[in-house]
Design a protein around this nucleic acid. Structure first.
Lengths: 258, 258
DNA sequence: ATAGACGTTCCTTTATTTGGGACGGGTGAC
DNA sequence: GTCACCCGTCCCAAATAAAGGAACGTCTAT
């Protein structure tokens, strides 16, 4: 299965050897595979497949198993280091710009910091009215759409705790239950539809982005005044936001629910 | 930091392009680096470095940052998948065989399973007297040398809990304290020196193996009758066991304490 | 304004990679 | 038991792919 490599990648020229080796890596992703099978699948001679596989193995990018070649230990190392080096914001940027351009709204990205959400970056849309939230802002996580998106994987006890924390005082039982009910709806939808409780008429659509481990690492959102982001507009935009989040997820290695 | 790649790797022939690309990956491991610097460091023309870097980037093995090139999102994906595919036992095998050959003793490998340690594999040494533990055996984790090695990163409360669990009944406070004191010594040494409390005269030297995340993933041990594994022999073998564990760690991507 | 550094593109030469072919070993069928 | 088939491995001549010199545009620091 997997996608047969039909597409003639535009690929940089003058790197056939490298590209073929990386093609091999892509095949091995699907599980251990025999060198001879690689040659067939990728349309190269047995000799070439053999040579590349040996090279990859000598660098520990591949490991030998009784079932053929599998991903090697070097990838464990690189994977961990990549996690430290990768800057999710930078990767997300181009997708955010695209989303902003298409929708005309401001797009935000943020991550969780303990019980808070930190706004990391934004792309200002063409909209005249701008939401004031600036990169760097930190807000109680249960208070913002972005924050709530970051919480979709948490359990209800955590939702309650953070909601209470966000409210500072002691919200009524009814308020808490109402919040949890909303969160359930967001979770079911996979996307947060947020109306600010501050009465400033700010509305947002926020969606979590998942990393290679399937965990929520950041979230993106579109925010504007309810005047612009009407129910109707929201219904139109919601799928777009979600698609953008999915694309960013794919860019950071998310493989989809498994 | 890291070994400068001075050595003319024996490397498979007919893969210059691939090797150079992987050399680039190795350089990028140390942090974002500029294409021109890569060309200098690796002794290739700026053009070549540029071409390879572009190719790597097009496959998401590298990402662009303001500071140069960094590890890319593809590695996140591969890292996670590799974790699932990699068979620690298979990787450890050759090192265990070497250790067994050099020391003459039985070598074991095992992993943690909750509150138990599971023996996964062994290499039978030249020793006539063999320790009965067979692959597949499961023992209370605080009861074996291998198990204790797997616990070196745990806190003292956990040590106590597992010791009590291993003892079944309620060991005396003195026994518990003595166990914890021993564990402290093992931890400081980075290696477990174990004498069976079962009175069967079994002795072992066990050392944890760390994975790419620095976490203890498996442990290896040498075990034999105290008659063979005398204090003197143990002192000689201990460093060998530790070196083997370190080599296995390196093979699974451990980067050393950071 | 100038000099240096970086990223990028183009083009020719060269050396690297390619793949056919052959060998040895292992496995299963007959 | 022999035979046929498929695997991984090795060798070598041919040809293609990759190397790198040179030149350009841009940006920054001097």
């Amino acid at each position: 299965m997997s996608d047969s490599d039909d597409s003639k990648e535009p690929g940089v020229k003058g790197t056939q050897t490298l590209m073929r080796a990386l093609d091999i890596m892509d095949e091995v992703i699907d599980g251990p595979i025999r060198a001879a099978d690689l040659a067939r699948k990728l349309g190269m001679s047995k000799t070439t497949a053999h040579r590349l596989v040996q090279a990859l193995k000598s660098r520990n990018y591949l490991a030998v198993t009784p079932d053929g070649f599998a991903l090697g230990p070097k990838l464990l190392q690189l994977g961990v280091l990549a996690t430290e080096q990768i800057d999710f914001v930078r990767i997300a940027r181009p997708f955010m710009e695209l989303l902003s351009e298409r929708s005309g709204f401001c797009v935000f990205v943020g991550k969780r910091e303990g019980d808070f959400s930190r706004h990391l970056d934004r792309v200002t849309g063409t909209q005249r009215l701008r939401v004031a939230t600036a990169p760097g802002d930190r807000r109680p996580i249960a208070e913002t759409g972005l924050g709530k998106a970051l919480l979709l994987d948490e359990d209800e006890a955590t939702w309650e705790r953070l909601y209470v924390a966000a409210k500072g005082g002691k919200p009524s039982r009814a308020a808490i239950n109402s919040f949890i009910a909303e969160m359930r709806a967001h979770k079911a939808r996979g996307e947060v539809w947020h109306d600010s409780e501050l009465g400033d008429g700010v509305r947002s659509i926020a969606t979590p982005v998942r990393d290679a481990k399937g965990q929520i690492c950041i979230a993106i959102s579109i925010a504007s005044a309810a005047h612009y982001l009407t129910d109707e507009v929201r219904a139109t935009l919601a799928p777009q936001v979600m698609r953008s989040a999915e694309q960013i997820g794919a860019a950071v290695g998310y493989n989809g629910p498994r």
